[in-house]
Design a binder for these strands. Structure first.
Lengths: 218, 218
DNA sequence: TTTTGTGAACGTGTTCACAGCG
DNA sequence: CGCTGTGAACACGTTCACAAAA
């Protein structure tokens, strides 16, 4: 399969969610146009995205909802379960642990780590918080994905420990660019960037035109 | 000012963070190459991004750290404070409320809403949880940004209530595409999409080649 | 010599538009 | 006729490469 763009993969997730809903509504078929409308994109985009993986539709009819849903499920690797370790038992870590949606999509949090002695040994959502120093032993747990919900300063170090423990994918919530070896997939969720991007957009809306700020350096 | 791409704005946030660090380290000047290295991108990208807003550097010398930091701060609209309302006092909502980073960047959460009677009236991080039915009154609070941390089903409805209350920017944590009127900025943080994108990447890594799944429709 | 600022070249993702099939 | 699948056209973001300035 050729190189698939990150945007295509993200849209696939969205299609999957829409198909879930449409399936629950009892509809049997759906056209690329309808699917596109629910996502606010063009129908050509939907067809192009799907075409990278095969021909799932019937000309004149559209796509079979249940079938396409299963195809995307398999493409996204959701037809199996993934073993996830969470590092950081603070506010965000606890919130992620309590969020039922992960398990529902096939992501099982099987271990949680923290460095704070006050947190180690505590029970959170049925899991005992382990000492982050024990991260190397995560290899024996068969962890495939690591979630980093630590403070900024610890993030890079934790990423390296996770990689050393054999993790092949990392979801990072710390507001910093992490460096990981090639072959390890990294996704970052940075709420600060999102807020600042909003603030930029709002500022533009109020004061639309402005040009060449120039000004002194040094 | 011409249309600025979303990616440029996001990188600006990253530059800002790097400049903070470099500033704290006491360095006076920084070159586009150094700035780029810290973010894992090319120096041309840094210079191009900055050039959309002005000429902040000195040839042969680089950029004055403190000055560039202030310029970006102003570009991103971080030279003022923003009034934020949080809707949803569940796990994610509470975690966001407790996160000190928002206030540090100029985003003040001044109200929190929920629909659950068990939560209304509770104190969370010094704020009393208000009834979501009172959202229209948020207009009198001068709220500019709304953060949606509700369950999936309520998200679109809440978005509309926020817009009606005069909010011009929305940060959405619900895993769904929201529809908002033109002129309202929307950013979505969808952890499910990130995880599924990871799962796709890992699946690819194991079983690289595969082609044309074809198969029956209907 | 170092490093910026930027037009031009390049590459990649999106949209168009239509042939092909049901 | 309706709708998919896809090459071609297009738009847009990134990288190159170099003139200009310190």
């Amino acid at each position: 399969m050729g190189r698939i763009s990150e945007s295509t993969v993200r849209r696939l997730s969205h299609y999957y969610r829409v198909l879930d809903e449409v399936h629950a509504e009892g509809r049997r078929m759906i056209s690329s146009r309808r699917l596109a409308e629910r996502e606010g994109i063009t129908s050509a985009q939907v067809r192009k995205d799907l075409s990278y993986f095969g021909s799932f539709g019937r000309r004149g009819l559209g796509y079979n909802v249940a079938h396409l849903r299963e195809e995307i499920r398999s493409i996204l690797g959701l037809d199996r379960r993934w073993r996830v370790a969470l590092v950081g038992a603070g506010h965000i870590g606890s919130a992620l642990l309590a969020y039922r949606g992960f398990a529902a999509q096939g992501f099982d949090i099987v271990a949680i780590y923290d460095r704070d002695p006050a947190r180690i040994g505590q029970k959170l959502s049925g899991l005992t918080v382990l000492d982050a120093a024990a991260l190397p032993a995560a290899a024996t747990l068969g962890i495939e994905i690591g979630v980093i919900a630590t403070p900024l300063k610890a993030a890079q170090e934790v990423a390296e420990a996770l990689v050393a423990a054999g993790v092949r994918g990392i979801l990072n919530f710390a507001p910093r660019k992490l460096f990981v070896p090639e072959g390890v997939a990294l996704r970052t969720v940075d709420m600060t960037v999102e807020l600042e991007s909003l603030s930029f957009a709002l500022r533009q809306a109020r004061a639309p035109r402005r040009r060449r700020g120039s000004g002194p350096a040094e």
